[in-house]
């Protein structure tokens, strides 16, 4: 019987006929970050990237059906055109115009982050995926509801099958897909990077600005990612209407009161307003704040630092069609 079966298969192949539909394998997707970024924090072997997984994650990222009333998506507060931040909104908005308590952080180079959110309450990218989905002032949704919608949609079962081999929709797969899409959001093509690669040169003003930056800012905003995966005081008084004590909320240690995660300064030009509660609208306001509390810079020096900060703008990142709304 085995011999017969083999003969049939061989015959089938020899005649150019297809006796069965082979399962299409998801295509592996290789990240190519610059070496000077160092090792990723995220263990990518636990969630190997595939083109299909990323496509599914991208579809989910831009789909408002994740929110309770199907009005907002991840992209509502994380627009690709502003380095996945919520530009012009001091505090993020949720469904029904509910107002959050913090400024939405940009999404970029998340594979190198050890903690997430301004208070670092989430220590794994996988966990971050579910936070806005459940937050009452963001999507106010829940996984059972979302999965029900996904299962009844016209196209998600097929997207899950393409990414994972069958149409089953689970928490693990949901997380993996959204994480895969976010992992490819690597910003590494600013002028700073071109200089680093030897393809461009800073202007004299930028060069002076970088020197000042290294002396005054880089201890927290460490190049090349311009963050330090740590929490620091930004010397801002607490907003009495928000009473956001930052890291203290997570640890309840007095010494952590008013510490906030150091945000990356990459693409800072696009991600206004600034600080954890978005209280500053311009980079100069931020510089004035630190100038009054920590640094002592002349107007000219402020301008030089500003010029350097603009070299962290990655236009190719914010205009990458692979990151934008999927058509």
């Amino acid at each position: 019987m085995i011999i017969t079966l083999c003969a049939v298969l061989v015959f089938g192949v020899s005649q150019g006929k297809r006796w069965f539909t082979p399962l299409a394998q998801p295509q592996a997707y290789k990240l190519n970050p610059p070496k000077y970024f160092g090792d990723m924090v995220y263990d990518i072997s636990s969630n190997p990237l595939t083109a299909e997984g990323i496509a599914l994650g991208r579809a989910l990222f831009y789909d408002p059906i994740l929110s309770l009333d199907s009005t907002i998506s991840c992209a509502t507060c994380h627009s690709s055109y502003t380095a996945f931040s919520h530009v012009d909104h001091a505090l993020s908005h949720g469904i029904g115009d509910t107002l959050g308590t913090r400024n939405a952080l940009p999404i970029q180079n998340v594979g190198w982050h050890k903690t997430f959110r301004w208070d670092g309450g989430l220590t794994h990218l996988d966990a971050q995926v579910m936070a806005p989905l459940h937050n009452a002032t963001e999507m106010a949704s829940n996984l059972p509801l979302v999965f029900k919608r996904l299962r009844h949609s016209d196209y998600y079962p097929a997207l899950f099958e393409a990414a994972f081999g069958d149409t089953s929709i689970s928490t693990r797969r949901f997380i993996d897909a959204l994480v895969q899409f976010q992992l490819i959001l690597i910003s590494n093509n600013a002028k700073y990077d071109s200089v680093r690669r030897g393809e461009a040169k800073f202007t004299a003003q930028e060069k002076k600005g970088f020197k000042l930056f290294k002396r005054n800012c880089a201890s927290c905003h460490e190049p090349p990612l311009f963050m330090n995966n740590d929490f620091t005081s930004n010397n801002l008084p607490v907003d009495s209407s928000l009473m956001d004590l930052g890291r203290y909320r997570v640890t309840q240690r007095p010494q952590d009161s008013l510490l906030f995660k150091t945000p990356s300064l990459r693409n800072i030009e696009y991600t206004y307003p600034y600080m954890h509660d978005g209280r500053f609208n311009t980079i100069y306001e931020v510089l004035d704040h630190y100038d009054a509390n920590v640094m002592a810079l002349s107007d000219e020096e402020q301008t030089e630092i500003y010029a350097f900060l603009l070299t962290l703008s990655d236009y190719s990142y914010i205009r990458n069609p692979d990151f934008a709304f999927p058509h």
Partner: peptide
């Protein structure tokens, strides 16, 4: 450990 079990905090790990 599936968050569907209702035992996972989502605003923190």
């Amino acid at each position: 450990f599936d968050p569907l079990q209702g035992m996972y905090w989502t605003w923190q790990n």
